[in-house]
Simulated assay, not measured.
Amino acid sequence: MDKTRLVEAKRRNGILQICKEWRNNGIEIAIDDFYDIHTTLQLQEKIIAKLDDLDTQKKYFFCKKTYEIEDFLNYTSKVICKSMKYVFFVENSTKFGAIKLQGDIISNNIEYIISKSELLNGGCSIFICSCGLENGVCLWRGEYDSRVYCW
C-alpha cells in the first residue's frame, strides 16, 4: 500500500470513529458529510481572510474568557438557520476534514457540538459558517482577549 492510500485509509478510519461517537450521542453524520482536507484548508483560509477583514473594520465583540462560550452561543443563535447547511471545524479538522451539518442539528445539539470544537480541545477557535461562507460566527481566543465575530 502506498503512502497516499495509507494516509487516506487512516483518515477514513478516524472519520468513521467520529461518526460512531456522534451517533452514540444522538447525532447522525456520515463519511460523506466531511470535506476533504484540501477543501477544508481552502475554507479555513477564506474564513481567516474574512476575520482579518472584520478586524480591519473593527467588527467584532470582545468577551471575557469566563463568558466567551455564552457570548458565542448568543451570536450563534442569531446566525444559524435550521434549514441551511453549515461548515463546522471539528477538533483535528485539518486531519479529518471539516463537517457539513444541517442548521437544525447544530441548534438542537449545540453544547455537544461545541465540546467537539478545536477551542475546547487545545485549539484557539470555534468556527461555524454557511457552506458558501455568506454568514457565520467565530469565537477566537487570543493571547490577550477573546473575540466573537459574526457576519
Rank of each mutant, 00 (worst) to 15 (best):
L120D: 01
V90N: 15
Y86M: 07
S83I: 08
S115E: 01
Q102N: 15
C124Y: 06
D104R: 12
G122I: 08
A98H: 06
M84L: 15
G97Q: 01
N92Q: 14
S115R: 00
S117Q: 01
N108S: 11
F89E: 08
S117G: 04
G97S: 07
I113Y: 00
N109G: 06
L101D: 05
K82Q: 11
F88Y: 12
K116L: 05
G123K: 01
K95W: 11
Y86I: 09
N108Y: 04
G123N: 03
C124I: 07
N121P: 08
E118N: 13
L119E: 02
S83D: 15
N108E: 11
I99E: 04
C81M: 13
G123I: 01
E91R: 10
I113Q: 01
L119T: 03
S83Y: 10
F89H: 07
K100G: 10
K116Q: 13
I99C: 12
Y112V: 01
I99V: 15
G97P: 10
I105P: 02
F88P: 07
N121F: 06
A98N: 09
G122H: 07
S115T: 00
D104Y: 13
Y86H: 05
A98G: 14
S115Q: 00
K82T: 10
Q102T: 12
N121H: 03
Y86F: 14
Y112T: 00
A98F: 08
S115C: 02
K85Q: 09
M84G: 03
E91K: 13
S115N: 02
